[in-house]
């Protein structure tokens, strides 16, 4: 079955920045969906990280603000210390509530929200990390017929997170960092 991709959500923790810096330079400019990145990081490091990511790609990199409208072909970064939820297919909300899996933002929370709102149009990718955040979210993506991709644990700096995903979720595709960009580019319609 051919699915139309309406959103790509990427979650990562320890060791995932390195992967993003491999992926982002090779993304095509005219993607037909937005990309949302949820990364665990220190609250104080935000502007540095955004700049680093912005310089690595030709796509526009935007830090999410409350009630922002998402556009295709842009990369949206969830700010530190907030959870991010989709109100509908274009409008996003931030939420400052309890941490989940010791994390805020929590990957699970955004993945679940993407699953509910985009259903089979959601593609979720989980990268390197030491925490199990994201695994439950991937299950939700799956249960709504979305697509689940995971970084090849053998290529991860910290393999716990992708390994948990491969153990507990019916993963659609396992990707090496160098394969991720072309995978995403091919999701375009």
């Amino acid at each position: 079955m051919l699915k139309r991709t309406n959103i790509v959500v990427i979650g990562g923790s320890a060791g995932s920045l390195k992967v993003l810096l491999v992926v982002l330079p090779h993304l095509d400019k005219d993607l037909s969906f937005p990309i949302v990145i949820i990364m665990h990081r220190k609250a104080s490091s935000d502007s540095v990280l955004n700049k680093l990511l912005a310089h690595s790609t030709q796509l526009e990199v935007i830090e999410i603000e409350d009630k922002m409208t998402m556009l295709p072909g842009c990369i949206y970064i969830v700010p530190p210390n907030y959870h991010m939820l989709f109100e509908n297919k274009t409008l996003v909300s931030l939420d400052f509530s309890e941490k989940l899996n010791f994390s805020r933002p929590s990957i699970d929370i955004t993945f679940r929200s993407a699953a509910e709102v985009f259903q089979e149009g959601a593609v979720a990718l989980l990268l390197s990390g030491a925490n199990s955040d994201g695994v439950n979210g991937l299950k939700e993506i799956k249960s709504y017929q979305g697509t689940v991709a995971v970084q090849d644990p053998a290529t991860a700096d910290v393999d716990y997170m992708p390994l948990q995903a491969t153990l507990h979720v019916d993963v659609d595709i396992i990707l090496k960092p160098t394969e991720i960009a072309s995978y995403i580019n091919r999701l375009r319609i």
Partner: peptide, 9 residues
Amino acid sequence: YSKASLKRR
């Protein structure tokens, strides 16, 4: 109120 957040709560 924002529905997405409320639903979580």
